[in-house]
């Protein structure tokens, strides 16, 4: 039984963290344990398809604000880059899922549609590097989901309620914990990764241009993927955060509520309210 990260870590002294989470899922929904794995395999398969679909094929959306972002990054990844091929490929995957989402394609909300690129991009990248098998990936996704459930229960994953830190931030925290788990880090390291990832984006606002799930959403999916991977590496290196993950989650929630409504998905603040942002919006709503 767990409702907090600290309870999750305590319970994980008795058995692996994914088992603790599966037990709670079975108690809640009555779904057999094998089905939890099966459903995670299905979710991950949808995630992967969305992360690969736009790598070579720009997706059509109206207006085409982010069309072709993924293929641009994918092509660039092969050349002389600063972050290296892996990180650039990861960002291309996050951008792909964002393009697919904006084009009314099929995605898996993780935890939301607007942040649907982060978990697929980060987990695919880490799993490839570590040579993880299908069940290990499902278990890492179960850990990510357990962390996400705590954030949903004790804070929020809604951009309208908590800003982008709640959506892409939560996704980054979940992905960071999943990577630590894939790397066989300890439960405490998973918690540290959650803290670090959330701290790194605390206060991030939700300011979609024209109210569309395109800009800045796609860039934030890419950058929060990098946040997740680097937070996992910091936790695996042994970095610790004196503020426990549960308190960081609470802080994120309070910061979200302190944000003015203009910075919580209303398209009235941030880059949505810039001269150009308003122009794009006016043109979109004027078009038939």
């Amino acid at each position: 039984m767990y409702n907090t990260i600290s309870q999750l870590i305590s319970a994980s002294r008795e058995k692996p963290m994914h088992e603790v989470i599966i037990d709670d899922e079975m108690a809640l929904t009555g779904v057999p344990r094998g089905d939890v794995y099966l459903r995670m395999h299905t979710s991950f398969s949808v995630m992967q398809k969305s992360a690969l679909k736009a790598l070579d094929t720009p997706q059509h959306m109206t207006p085409p604000l982010i069309k072709g972002q993924s293929s641009l990054q994918h092509k660039y990844a092969d050349g002389a880059t600063l972050c290296g091929k892996e990180v650039n490929e990861m960002m291309a995957m996050a951008l792909s899922a964002s393009e697919v989402n904006a084009s009314m394609g099929r995605i898996c909300a993780a935890p939301t549609a607007g942040s649907c690129g982060i978990l697929p991009a980060v987990i695919t990248t880490a799993a490839k590097k570590l040579g993880s098998n299908k069940n290990e990936i499902a278990e890492a996704l179960i850990v990510a989901s357990g962390i996400g459930a705590v954030i949903m229960r004790n804070a929020t994953v809604s951009g309208a309620e908590g800003g982008c830190q709640a959506e892409c931030g939560a996704a980054a925290a979940m992905a960071a914990a999943a990577c630590v788990y894939l790397s066989h880090g300890t439960p405490q390291m998973c918690a540290e990764a959650v803290s670090i990832a959330l701290i790194n984006c605390m206060g991030l606002v939700c300011d979609p241009v024209a109210g569309l799930v395109q800009l800045p959403c796609s860039f934030r999916n890419a950058s929060q993927s990098a946040n997740a991977l680097s937070s996992a590496d910091m936790a695996l290196a042994g970095q610790t955060c004196p503020i426990p993950a549960d308190e960081v989650i609470e802080a994120m929630f309070r910061v979200g509520h302190a944000l003015p409504s203009s910075l919580r998905e209303t398209a009235e603040g941030g880059i949505a309210a810039t001269q150009t942002g308003k122009k794009i919006s006016a043109e979109f709503f004027a078009a038939k």
């Binding site: 979710s43 394609g105 898996c108 607007g114 989901s145 459930a149």
Partner: peptide, 14 residues
């Protein structure tokens, strides 16, 4: 909260 309310639903965006 079910895991599949966190990772999921599989849906058409956006």
């Amino acid at each position: 909260i079910s895991l599949f309310d966190v990772v999921g639903p599989v849906m058409i965006g956006p």
